[in-house]
Design a protein around this nucleic acid. Structure first.
Lengths: 192, 192
DNA sequence: GACGGTGGCTAATGCGATTAGCTTCTGAGT
DNA sequence: ACTCAGAAGCTAATCGCATTAGCCACCGTC
């Protein structure tokens, strides 16, 4: 019988498609194997197990998100960069409701690609702050504020936590607008 | 042999203690049964199954959180109320790292207590906004902004998403400070 | 054209969830 | 006190998923 021709990339990407369709908590080796047309234990030739697959999926999704954030940030600064990165962030989460929560998993320190992807995503945030002239210790606080707002809104939206999805675009715009004001005032108000 | 004397309350409260110790994803009927000293199927006399237990846990945790937020908000207004509610919110999540994520589960519409608890928590947020004079449509956006910031920070912190926990208190203070500024400007800048 | 590694398989085990059905405790009513 | 209904617990059985062990066939290399 012919071989399926799998490798880790194919398995992880199929897992990514699966979680976007059925939700992250429904990620199961059995479902991935079924979609790939192989028996469940065959996957062990490519991933160590269910936990390892979830971690690899996190690395993959984080790299995807970091790429899109970087692409959005390049060539922009200030409010322009903020709006572009914020839009890219939310867009990724809406297009990939299963992958997005996976990006919030803490990177496996033993996986250099995963760690690098996480750092790249954070760097996109710092790039936005740089456009506001925020650096050093103040940037740590501002980055956490920005990440919190983006992640909070997007995770609540994807999880359905906002009730009826009425006017979510406007609410997001308002939040980003207030973040813009906060970042513009950041250097003057809260740092020496 | 004597009976264990369980009821749904006891089961749900034990589940709450369990998830705070081992994490929400480790919630298992087997573990709860073991802690309560009964066989696993015995729990079915009190909860419909694993999914139902998770939902009841969500309702329980949401009610707890709503109580603490309401207690923090009562008798305060403006920045005072904001800081008190924000502190209570973060405090709950840190004391209950397993229960807190459960509060983000969408309430079961068929469970009136769960729905009521969720509404109570949201009402605490609106109470804060009221102190800033924000009402009507603008309050919807402001409430989403406030919820996003609080939930985003706290969930990233509890999940370990901020890397080393250095200066998290300061970062939170900074974020709340910028929220205070945003809310004070809310009526003047973004609404008619 | 053999051969070694690799990718796939089947079989077997373990654990958690769930259902069925039995037993025994408890407590309300006489 | 006695009965009895219902509730609360149990064991047994089934199912699905994860994991491990071990077998076998394909494939590229010499």
């Amino acid at each position: 019988m012919p071989r399926a021709g799998l490798n880790q990339q194919i398995v992880v990407r199929e897992a990514a498609r699966l979680v976007d369709e059925v939700g992250r908590e429904q990620l199961t080796l059995a479902a991935v194997a079924g979609r790939l047309g192989v028996a469940l234990p065959s996957l062990y030739k490519h991933v160590r197990g269910a936990d390892a697959l979830a971690q690899k999926l996190s690395a993959f999704a984080t790299a995807e998100l970091a790429d899109e954030l970087m692409t959005a940030a390049v060539g922009r600064a200030g409010a322009d960069a903020l709006h572009a990165v914020a839009a890219a962030y939310r867009s990724y989460a809406r297009r990939h409701p299963g992958r997005y929560p996976a990006t919030q998993q803490v990177p496996d320190p033993a996986d250099p690609d995963h760690v690098a992807a996480g750092e790249r995503a954070v760097r996109a945030v710092y790039a936005v702050l740089h456009g506001y002239g925020i650096t050093g210790d103040a940037a740590v606080d501002a980055a956490r504020t920005l990440r919190s707002a983006l992640h909070g809104f997007v995770s609540l939206e994807v999880a359905g936590g906002f009730g009826l999805p009425r006017d979510l675009d406007r609410s997001y715009d308002q939040m980003i607008g207030s973040l813009d004001a906060a970042l513009r005032a950041w250097g003057t108000r809260w740092t020496g």
